[in-house]
Nucleic acid binder design. Structure first.
Lengths: 145, 145
DNA sequence: CCTTGTTAGTTACAAAACCAACTAATATCC
DNA sequence: GGATATTAGTTGGTTTTGTAACTAACAAGG
């Protein structure tokens, strides 16, 4: 990219990314927070369990990159809401299999649909080519370190 | 974009945006946090003052979109660090002109350089065309609501 | 002027994130 | 087999954020 004479915060990619992320996340919050009183980490944990089936907290951490303390609190919150149930594994009693309850499954189905529609509405602003580039670049940035 | 059969969290744009934003922000944090003990809002306020010169807190809010309570706390923190000084305006004594001290200017110059290098290093992973699309899409998303 | 309304900025309190220490169960190694 | 180390998950204490109420200065209408 040709170098600019001035450098504003809007030219700084981490800033641009943060602004875009906040704008889109805030809007989608309405669905999981407004309708189900869930926090973002709870929604993400619910998603993983709904999408991939029962697993341990450790596996959720590995898949999502969320820290174990956040997962632990999200699991406790989802359990209080009766969206999730635990079962200690007899093969290794440190481990708990975490699974969605029928109610949790219904919430997941609802939020999954909302997420798909939200995503479609967002990408409708772009051409197929733009969207492909956007997703590719974001994926690469997310894996940078 | 052609519809996918399955929908994973990685396909959800707000999630992808958040992951990319966190990855890039975390890395750049080292500069302002590691070297100067600053929080992100402090860095952003410092940037605006360095880039555009002295202004009131209200103007920082308008330019940056940061809420006034966060600006208020960031200003107080920057003042404690002696990077910023205030001057009550006699024309309207509710207003304070906020400006960087010489030390604040030095910190700004250092961080500005770091930001430019960081940005260049990031965009080096993309073609000019990809970068243009990326920035355009992000800007549009950031202004969605 | 002098009540009423607005604006700039701060502060107080509650919600949430962060980090580090902790418990309980299992694995390892002599 | 028993001390030591690891691993899964939780909890406590501190920082940071968010929200809403607050103060001080100015503005406007009567």
């Amino acid at each position: 990219m040709t170098q600019k004479a001035t450098f504003d915060l809007e030219d700084f990619l981490p800033y641009l990314l943060t602004q875009a992320a906040e704008a889109s996340s805030l809007e989608f919050q309405q669905h999981y927070k407004g309708r189900y009183g869930m926090l973002r980490t709870e929604w993400r944990v619910l998603f993983h369990l709904g999408r991939f089936g029962a697993m341990t907290a450790k596996e959720i951490c590995a898949r999502s990159g969320i820290h174990k303390t956040k997962v632990s609190r999200a699991v406790a919150a989802l359990e209080r809401k009766r969206y999730l149930s635990r079962e200690v594994l007899e093969t290794d009693r440190r481990l708990e299999s975490l699974g969605l309850t029928p109610m949790g499954e219904r919430v997941f189905a609802d939020l999954l649909g909302a997420a798909q529609r939200f995503d479609s509405a967002m990408t409708a602003h772009f051409t197929d080519q733009e969207e492909a580039v956007l997703r590719r670049c974001l994926t690469r940035i997310a894996r940078l370190p």
